[in-house]
Design a binder for these strands. Structure first.
Lengths: 213, 213
DNA sequence: GCGCCAATTATTCAAGCGTATAATAAGCTC
DNA sequence: GAGCTTATTATACGCTTGAATAATTGGCGC
């Protein structure tokens, strides 16, 4: 009986592959279906290899969680920095968060699977907190710049309160827009998001939502 | 060797017990830890009994999901109907959704665990859709009554759009308020919710958030 | 092109999984 | 209080799980 031939990959890409396979399995079969064997098969390796790269299955799940969250915030921030004005950057940030690839059923499944472990495993809680705070901070920075650009005086505390409300709104729209993806046309959700943000910030209707580059 | 003595319970309460034990296990150990044996132990029975009441483990999970969602909407609606005016009912509904027992880490864990299965198991998707639509409808009804009471003319379509935005905001605040429970004082979250709702509906500041019964 | 190191496979293990079936005791009916 | 129904327990079965270990093979340094 011959042994399987195989390719010796670099540590970085092998880890990447294993994490990707883990996410595929969770998205497809749920966290219960993400077994060592299933993941290994998906990655085209044998089960034993996983323990060569991660201390255990749990550590691999932690890495996978980080990967998902990083992907989401990265997409939104990348979209934002392409804007030329603070207003445009804020607008782009909001829209990106309620537009594919951020609004993706697969991403939502993964996100929820991990969220449900936050109360159980402190490692997940730490990863969550990290990302929540950095998202809130990004939003607050965008907001502060926007108000400055508009020459509107807004206190630090007020800005923080706005950020919490905006964050909740964006998260909620993301959540429901993704869950009921068939119910909303793509631009419909973005439009609703911008109108709602305008209202939350007490802007004039159209200040953000009107067509602009 | 003696056999264990036991109590013969009515079908209704035994099912109730089993579902409660299922939720306990999911909340405590995650959906992976909610095994037939673990659940049975928690319910104080032996594993075999589960198959006497449910066709299989999956059917029990579906029942458990229904239970969680029913509990959440029920709490909010119960709070709302105690209000005397349409404004008060809307206000109470909002506040109830960002206040314990709805904002409860345990509930969030359960909710997320089930959400992550929506894309995998169509049965979960159906249960979700049912509840989402009924929540949206409740909100729309409250809104319509509120606008009528305020003698403010709002089109059906506009009302629907408002409901989607409000729903997203409430869900988002619920989500983050629960995840970061230690970050917010209890009334702080409710206050923020009311102020944000005012803004979304383009009301005068204080119309909802000011103290009132 | 040879040796060496470690990345990878193959195999094994005990524990735990969901389900099926048979034995038994609880508690209603009469 | 005897008898019947069925809710409940007990036990067994076949599979899968995460992890540990031993055997091998790929590819780099020389």
């Amino acid at each position: 009986m011959n042994r399987r031939t195989y390719h010796r990959a670099s540590e970085a890409e092998r880890r990447e592959d294993l994490i990707a396979a883990t996410l595929d399995c969770i998205a497809e079969f749920g966290i219960q279906g993400a077994t060592v064997r299933q993941i290994a098969m998906r990655a085209g390796v044998t089960g034993g290899l996983i323990r060569h790269y991660f201390a255990g299955k749990d550590q691999m799940l932690h890495a996978a969680y980080r990967k998902v969250m990083a992907g989401m915030t990265e997409a939104a921030i990348t979209a934002a920095i392409e804007g030329e004005t603070a207003r445009s950057r804020l607008r782009r940030f909001i829209v990106a968060n309620v537009t594919p690839p951020v609004t993706d059923p697969r991403t939502l499944s993964l996100w929820a699977a991990f969220i449900s472990h936050i109360q159980i495993d402190p490692s997940f809680a730490a990863i969550h907190r990290e990302n929540y705070l950095s998202f809130l901070e990004a939003l607050e920075t965008l907001l502060t710049a926007f108000f400055a650009e508009e020459k509107r005086v807004v206190s630090r505390a007020q800005c923080h309160t706005y950020a919490i409300g905006l964050n909740a709104l964006v998260d909620g729209l993301w959540l429901e827009g993704t869950l009921a993806a068939d119910t909303f046309a793509e631009h419909e959700l973005a439009e609703n998001a911008l109108i709602s943000v305008e209202a939350l910030l007490r802007l004039q209707p159209g200040e953000l939502s009107a067509e602009q580059r």
